[in-house]
Design a protein around this nucleic acid. Sequence first.
DNA 1: GCTATAAACTACTAATCCAGTAGGATATAT
DNA 2: ATATATCCTACTGGATTAGTAGTTTATAGC
Lengths: 151, 151
Amino acid sequence: MTSLTQKSKYALKALFYLSRHYQPDQGVQTPVLIAELAEAEHIPRKFLEVILLELKHATLLQSRKGKGGGYWLSKKPQDIYLGHVIRIFEGPIAPIACVSKRHFEACQDCDDIDYCQVRYVMLKVKLAVLDILDKTSLADVLNADDLPIML
Amino acid sequence: MTSLTQKSKYALKALFYLSRHYQPDQGVQTPVLIAELAEAEHIPRKFLEVILLELKHATLLQSRKGKGGGYWLSKKPQDIYLGHVIRIFEGPIAPIACVSKRHFEACQDCDDIDYCQVRYVMLKVKLAVLDILDKTSLADVLNADDLPIML
DNA sequence: GCTATAAACTACTAATCCAGTAGGATATAT
DNA sequence: ATATATCCTACTGGATTAGTAGTTTATAGC
């Protein structure tokens, strides 16, 4: 349960990398090469290409082709939320479709959706997850003061 | 992300059903037929067979064959936690293996696991989910006073 | 002991998703 | 023109999901 795909993980790693290279006080950003990013984060290059392209189509990134080209964030790291990123690659963040707001779908086997015990719990899970992912930006994580992680 | 399989959902529905049929003050429980459960909860019968068997092997259920046979809970609904059930069917409840306690595995692409931003966030997600699933029993849900659900 | 009942078990399948890869097309700077 | 670097489409092998089919074993009642 609750598993993150490699694709989403790579996307987040790429965005964190680009966030670290973000220049706050300049309008124009220095592009980062796919090749550089792939090597630095140990992401298969061709796979990363596809991922960055999807992020661009989702308007989180901008790019330029040819010499001096590459990718950069289209907005500030504090304005990019993890929930948004994950939704791009994995669709709705809901353990079950009947608790999704925008992609709601009722279970075929459900008699009374308002009293379904499974739905009751999964709604709580969803809200707890969204409370993290939709409130945490790339910048929040980079500036976190409770690091290193201790399990 | 965070998606529940049909199998887990059916398992939970079956357990809630058996909880409703649990007789608190008696040592001996009245068996419930697979066929009855399948019809009442609209679960494919053969699939449910497999599911109940797995729950039995996980010691959450007991059963008897032949006439007068069926399935019943091997312990009280207040002693069966949702996290346990979900782990039986889906394995570890962790968005990524590097935040799992018992099934820990490091990412191959990770340079410094203690400062990994992805891991940092996914640990928070995991803790939030476990805080619900490992603290909520079947009985807790059946006795919930915040029903019906309002999205 | 025979018969009906009901769970137990093994093995298979079709469809979907995941984690990439291959190869060429297009845009840009010099 | 040429080198550089992104853009785009299509594909592949493996794993997982949601079941189904068919047979075997245990049990209760007569």
